[in-house]
Design a protein around this nucleic acid. Structure first.
Ligand code: FES
Ligand code: FES
Lengths: 151, 151
DNA sequence: ATTATTCCTATCTGGCCGGTCGGAATTACG
DNA sequence: CGTAATTCCGACCGGCCAGATAGGAATAAT
């Protein structure tokens, strides 16, 4: 059960943008460097984030990307869902699914489903209780304590 | 972020065994039917569970498998870990990892890691707070309420 | 015009998930 | 003893898709 690189990279990119929030459009190349994501690939990913309305873009020279909302107003769950789709450790417990359809072929109904629902809710809680703002803040704090992050 | 079929099937099989606990060895074919898992595949999976000590096997005619412990004493997290490996939504937050190694290439340390740790802990909590016993019990209860589970 | 940038879509590749197969070992049973 | 029921083991394999790369068209600043 791994988060794909889309989720990983997308989240990293968004954190980078959060750190640079308020300083105007940031070109893709910068985000790519800062978040260590292959530029060509990032381009694809950030397109998704834009279409989802999480980032705004400015085209042409001096253009770039920026968060469409303040970092404190962006739950990481939103980013996650754009990149990874609805939270669903298993098809039969997809977040937004019609509760009536139970596609499990098990005899006597499915007992395991209860577990996966719990797991799903655990993930949702973790994702939706944090904002990009929280992340950059936490990070700045730990930078303060340990000097310049060291190597 | 999906649980693979190994986890799904493994869990289903264990629930089946839990329901039949105390009635002697259950042949693979029965478990396969009851949990709707291709027998040949299940054989592979249940081998893992056996080697991990979660089930005991009896060879030869009239042989089969049974839980090595009472259902109430088996946390679903144990089953999960056997089938899926340590809980780790992302390599850098693997359950049993050496906390010193931080392999993230991000500039200024990694802010996103905090999220994944939260996610991981959410999953762990969900898995370790439930036992196979809980599952079969819950399931029996819902059977009672809705007749014979219907079609 | 030239340069910096976003935008779009097609294409490729390796890994591994999900599953099958054949046969050897082991034990019950009449 | 022989035969049937079963676990046990490792090899094999096809298809899908994550994880990129590539090329070029549109847009805007200077
Ligand atoms: S309904 Fe999902 S495992 Fe049964
Ligand atoms: S350390 Fe895992 S994403 Fe940075």
């Amino acid at each position: 059960m791994k988060v794909s690189t889309r989720g990983e990279y997308g989240m990293r990119a968004m954190v980078s943008l959060a750190r640079l929030y308020g300083e105007g459009p940031v070109p893709l190349s910068t985000i790519a460097t800062e978040s260590s994501v292959p530029p060509a690939y990032l381009e694809q990913l950030i397109g998704q984030l834009r279409r989802a309305g999480l980032v705004n873009s400015t085209r042409g020279a001096n253009g770039g990307y920026e968060l469409s909302r303040a970092p404190e107003d962006v739950r990481v769950g939103e980013v996650y869902r754009v990149m990874e789709g609805p939270v669903a450790p298993m098809v039969c417990v997809t977040e937004d699914m019609d509760p009536s359809e139970d596609l499990c072929p098990m005899i006597d109904g499915c007992a395991t489903r209860l577990v996966w629902i719990k797991v799903r809710d655990g993930i949702v809680e973790a994702l939706d209780s944090t904002t990009l703002g929280d992340l950059v803040q936490q990070n700045r704090k730990s930078d303060m304590l340990s000097g310049t992050g060291v190597s």
